[in-house]
Structure formats: structure tokens, C-alpha cells
Design a binder for these strands. Structure first.
Lengths: 199, 199
DNA sequence: GCCGATGTATATCGTTCGCTAAACAACGAG
DNA sequence: CTCGTTGTTTAGCGAACGATATACATCGGC
């Protein structure tokens, strides 16, 4: 019953997400956002509220479109052990080819400590990732592809920590050997005890 | 041969470091810094150059005073294995009691990708930490307190990754059980193979 | 005690910040 | 075609940004 929008909401949100992703929340100005999105300031404010609301929207969209879908796909198509390996491999590959790192990790450090609402969202998503690892580890322990002597909770926490650490390391020292070595060693922790391979 | 400064350089640099540490580089204004340091803007600029130079100074000071000294102390007073454990324990304890996280990690994400000079400094320090872990792991493998079947390089990389990951996790989800569990599991990876303890 | 030199205080500089009022443009309902 | 509603454009608000010119205060050397 009125004038329709002239922009594609998905496209402009992608553009905004990219700016936040690259430069962080504080270092991204509304003018930057407007230019990247192809919107004048009033259209931006009319459509999305203010800068903070736009960021929240971008972060939610990023998290929904990225991690959840990936977790679901891996759990549906792979064995538990293979799902863990594939997830870590994907983190390493993405870290090496995309210098922006991970918007979730970037935001966890920059925004979450000063913004309870976003902090809660991020904590929940980290919890989801931990849950994914925990489910896979328990399943792998049952089917013999993971060492049942380790506590599943702690293993899941270490894998979560490893993912976050890889994302940090990649942004300061994006060397394939380093990232791949760390990921390989984290996976080695899952291995069940070898019977006749001692040195 | 002229008027001496009326402020304690160490004290004002501590104050500046705290502001950068808490709020990040972009979100800290020169007025914030001046107020925290007790300096008017011209004194600040006269003494330290500009905001970027002050940040570099704070970061260098933080890195020199913190990590290097800690590494040196641990390697001098403990066995290799105990040094690794103590370092991880310290990271967990500090992460839980100091909500600011780690200035090195915060800067690695926010500043390093857009600032080659600081990026180099941070990469070097991460290399030093990796070197510390590598020395300790090799020594521990020699004295039988670490599993010699693992590649020392990869173990060191995983421990480095774990430290960074713990720092991120602590800022978004500072739960003792999570951090302690991840650290414990990372240390478990060092354990030499048990002889008669299989499940 | 005076002078050159350096540090500090006052008062901004021009720019950019997040955000918005007001005028104009494009649609559906009647 | 008119009207009410919504989106877009133009222009600019007050505040805060990083950084400084200028004037004043305080030191060592003479």
C-alpha cells in the first residue's frame, strides 16, 4: 500500500556484514555502511533502525547462514569422527583463504564484553558449537573411533577452544603449516589407544 | 636542560594500556586516554607522538613486561612439563579474574590485520610463545614426561592455539568449568602412553 | 637574574561521527 | 485522478573525533 523498496535486503545486508567483518564494529562508520550498501543514510535508518541494530541483524544472519547450516550438514552426511575432522578442516581452509577471519570470533572479543545482548547471542552460539562437538565425540566414543578414556565434555571444550584459537592465529599468522599442524594435533587427541604401535 | 616532566611515564602508560585493553584501539579516544592518564592533549602528543604511536608503545610494553618475563621465569624454575602446565594454568586463572582478556589477542584480531607493523610485532610474539612450548615439549619428550610419538612442532602449535582460544572463550563465556576442562584436555595430549590403564 | 629550551594549559582547528527534519518520488486504495 | 502511505533524496544537526597554534610555566646554563 505504499512505495516499495528499491534495494534487495539480502544484498545490502551482505554488504554491511562484510564491512563489519573486515573492520570491526567501532571502526565501521554509518557512512561506510551506506556507501557499501548503496543506501543513503535515511534509507538505512528507516530500514534497519540504527547502527547497533544493523550490526545485530548482520551478526544473526551470519550465524544462522553459516555455522548452524554447516553443523547440520556435517551431522547429516558424515560419521561422528568424520564430521569433527571435516569441521576442523573447513575452519583451517576458510581461515587461509578468507582474511576476514570469523565474524563470531571478532565480535566475541570486540563487542561481546561491552554489550550484554550480543554477548548472550555469542555465548549461545559457542554453546551450540560445543554441543555439536560433544554429540560427535560421544557417538565416536561409542563406535570406537574416539578414545573413550577421555571425558567427552573436556574434549568438546578443547575442540571449541581450538576452533577459536585457529581463527585468532589465522588473522595474525596465516601460515598453512601452523594451522594444519594445530588442527591435526587436536584430532590426534581423539584417537583411540593404539595396540602395538608404541614407538 | 629544560623543564622536566610532571608525570610518571610508567604510570601514565599503564593507564593508557588499560584503556586500550578494555575498549580496543578504535573505541578508545584520545580524550579518554588523556583523562585516564591525567594529561592534557598537548602533553600527550608531545610525549608520545600520536594515538597510533602511543598504542604501539603500550603494546610493546605490555608484551615485554608480561609474556617474556613469565616464560623466562617458568623455564628457569620448573621442569619442562611443569612449565607448560603452569603456563596454561596461569592463562586460565588470569582469564577468569581479569575480564579484559589479553591485549595481545585482542590486538591480533582488531589491529593486526590492518596494520602491518603491529601485525609483525604480534606474529613475532606468537612465534616466541610457540618456541617456548616447542622447547618445553622437546625437553619433556626427552625426560619421559611427554609422549614422544607426537610431533613436537604440532604439539607446540596446538598449545599456542589453545592459549589463544582460551582467551577468546574467556571473553564471551567466562565459565571456570569450560576453561579448566579445555586446558586439562590439552595437557592430557602430552601424556605418555599408559601401560596398563586401558579403560 | 636572565635566557634558551622544554613541558603544560587554554582554546580551539577542520573533519567525521551517528543521526534526522523536510521536501520530493512512487506506489495502492478509493 | 486524488489521496494517504511509505521510501528516497537533500541538506545539515549537535557532538565528538584526532590533532595543534598559541601563550604561559618551569627548568639548567651562564
Amino acid at each position: 500500500m505504499a512505495r516499495p523498496r528499491t534495494f534487495d535486503e539480502d544484498a545490502v545486508l551482505d554488504a554491511a556484514t562484510d564491512r563489519f567483518w573486515r573492520h570491526g564494529y567501532a571502526a565501521t562508520s554509518v557512512r561506510d555502511l551506506g556507501a557499501a550498501m548503496g543506501l543513503a543514510a535515511p534509507s538505512l535508518y528507516n530500514a534497519f533502525g540504527d547502527k547497533h541494530a544493523l550490526f545485530t541483524r548482520c551478526l544473526d544472519r551470519y550465524l544462522d547462514g553459516g555455522m548452524r547450516e554447516r553443523i547440520r550438514r556435517l551431522e547429516a552426511t558424515r560419521t561422528a569422527r568424520a564430521a569433527i575432522e571435516a569441521f576442523l578442516d573447513e575452519v583451517v581452509a576458510r581461515s587461509l583463504e578468507d582474511r576476514r577471519g570469523c565474524l563470531l570470533v571478532n565480535s566475541a572479543l570486540e563487542v561481546a564484553p561491552h554489550d550484554p545482548e550480543i554477548g548472550t547471542v555469542i555465548a549461545e552460539r559457542l554453546g551450540e558449537l560445543e554441543g555439536f562437538f560433544l554429540r560427535c565425540i560421544r557417538a565416536a566414543q561409542r563406535d570406537g573411533t574416539a578414545n573413550p578414556a577421555h571425558r567427552a565434555h573436556d574434549l568438546a571444550r578443547l575442540l571449541l577452544t581450538t576452533v577459536l584459537g585457529l581463527r585468532v592465529l589465522a588473522r595474525a599468522r596465516p601460515e598453512p603449516a601452523v594451522l594444519r599442524g594445530a588442527a591435526r594435533q587436536a584430532l590426534a587427541l581423539l584417537d583411540p589407544p593404539a595396540k602395538g604401535q608404541d614407538r
